[in-house]
Write a protein that binds this DNA or RNA. Structure first.
Lengths: 338, 338
DNA sequence: CTGAAAGCGCTAACAC
DNA sequence: GTGTTAGCGCTTTCAG
């Protein structure tokens, strides 16, 4: 029963006009008498005709589709903190694309030959790594690209939306000092994206500026909670335990709070905790954890806007669009006055 | 500087072979001497060539892309409960599609002529309304479709993944009765999707089976919290206040808990609360609210699998795939023993 | 193992 | 206001 696909020819025949008239009736290129247009519309509706998007794209060179590539490896495979981040960004980008009547496509692994190739007028690459391989490939293929966060090795690409970390990280660290932290440790992620690289830089600069020693350790985003606990436990028991920890991922921040409780370390009195991303984990931890929110909604909105502008041949911007992370001060860093 | 797009011709010329050889080198249709293949691969890499997906789709009749249409109106415009649901479903579907190396596209409003038309081999329609207009249109266009939840007016479509509500809703209501609820009210949503329709049916059946009066009121999913509060306040203050409320959306459940606290109604002692979807709101309310989780991850996984099977010409299934919602019993319905 | 050529369905000149 | 037709870049017979 599944007959061959309906084409513009079938509609033309049924409406007794030429195919170009049908084409124009749909794509609105030139004036058509309302009687003709009526017949065409009716014929199309009766046949269930819809223009073949591939044929149209092949001809026009445009698909009306924007691609999305989310780089963080642990977005798909990781714990719920990473999943939440992923979902939030994807949801925001999709919402914005729909609002702009643009198709949004999740691009399957671009250099897997077995993966589907997709038609896109441009591509948003989110959270690229330093010297990102996929970004390189996309650029090489001359696909117009907008990045969400910059590739730390390619900060010069102007088609980007990026977060302005230094003021917020500095504000967070100042806040900890005001709460009488004297030994602030940074537990950074191991991924080489701007989030880790820039926040590390800001931390180092702040230490230098304040004449305090840099104390950085790594906690991979890919660790399970069990593995992370193996590393955090000894740190909390050590004689030189810091009195404040800034940890990259929010779920590990919550984990630290839990381990601290178990080990009898009072938060925030003996240990303050803050995280560099916000999620349900930081919001609902006991106590609630001070966190920097990455403002994915704004990133998404600006990225889609920039992408559409770029596709529409807008001039190259002077600067990336800059978004500010939002700092949420919570109980984990609010020491009782005395 | 932005030269014309690289085509198969350019590669053929540079590798000094015919275009059909290049084509086969990429799409692997026939044996090619390794020397030739090498030259082609090198030429393609140097030029940054990538097959034009539109041309390929036009020729083969397949795009390798699956569409996703999320129907609930309030997914985009609503409160955070709806946004969370949306994000979770979209994230899960995208993850699964990526895993299967299939492009996933968010389909822009299918009957807005200004919206982009997209090439898709099939389409997932999530949470259709009763007699869903868009579903009708997609079917009419003969696009292979899989639904997440059934259209209540078209329960016969076998290409579907659906939730099995009756056992879980019954279990919830039985639980409330065991906790000595004598007057259980249902605050249902106003959207006509399976979630509302089927849970209402289950509630009615349970009332009849237990010989208790049906007590249903509507609370639109589109209300703001302020508007919802206007309706809920009087209900809690009324002399015939129920001693248990099952409310569709989780954020309104949390709102009820908050208003109850304000009005001095103790939860769960004087009023039990449960919701028919789970989210951060129900999990973090005070007290935490008993909720039915819609298991979006499983829905998504099965839907993608079904879609790919259908595109691959699998036989029509006898029955929709059935997923069970998950009931989370929490403090809001656990009365202290006495 | 490789090449030549038809044609997928549409848009956009160019004719009238 | 409408019709004719070339050709977008690829896959796939059909010939060698």
């Amino acid at each position: 029963m599944s007959r061959r696909r309906i084409t513009i020819r079938d509609v033309a025949e049924r409406a007794d006009v030429s195919i170009s008239t049908v084409s124009h009736a749909f794509s609105g290129g030139r004036p058509i008498s309302s009687a003709t247009k009526d017949r065409i519309t009716r014929a199309a509706a009766e046949l269930g005709y819809e223009p073949n998007p591939s044929a149209r794209s092949l001809r026009t060179g445009r698909s009306g589709i924007v691609g999305l590539i989310l780089r963080p490896r642990f977005a798909l495979a990781g714990t719920s903190d990473r999943a939440e981040t992923f979902n939030r960004l994807v949801g925001s980008v999709a919402t914005e694309a729909l609002r702009r009547k643009t198709g949004l496509i999740h691009v399957p692994d671009i250099d897997d030959p077995r993966a589907a190739k997709v038609p896109m007028d441009g591509c948003i690459v989110a959270h690229p790594y330093s010297g990102d391989r996929v970004l390189t490939e996309v650029l090489h293929r001359r696909i117009p690209v907008v990045t969400v966060e910059e590739d730390p090795q390619r900060p010069e690409l102007p088609w980007a939306v990026r977060l302005d970390y230094p003021p917020v990280v500095t504000r967070l660290l100042d806040h900890l000092r005001e709460q009488h932290a004297s030994d602030v440790m940074l537990l950074t992620g191991t991924e080489s994206n701007a989030w880790n690289v820039r926040t590390r830089e800001s931390y180092r600069a702040w230490c230098e500026h304040n004449g305090v020693p840099v104390r950085i350790d790594e906690l991979s985003e890919g660790l399970t909670h069990g593995e992370a606990a193996q590393l955090i436990g000894p740190l909390l028991a050590a004689p030189d335990r810091p009195d404040a920890i800034v940890v990259a991922t929010s779920d590990f921040a919550a984990l630290i709070a839990k381990l601290a409780a178990t080990q009898g370390v009072r938060v925030p009195e003996e240990l303050m905790i803050a995280s560099l991303t916000d999620s349900e984990h930081s919001r609902t931890a006991e106590p609630a954890i001070t966190a920097m929110d990455l403002n994915h909604e704004s990133l998404a909105k600006e990225a889609v806007e920039l992408m559409l502008a770029r596709i529409d041949d807008a001039a190259e911007p002077e600067q990336p669009v800059v978004i500010s992370p939002v700092l949420h001060l919570r109980a984990s860093t609010q020491r009782p006055r005395h």
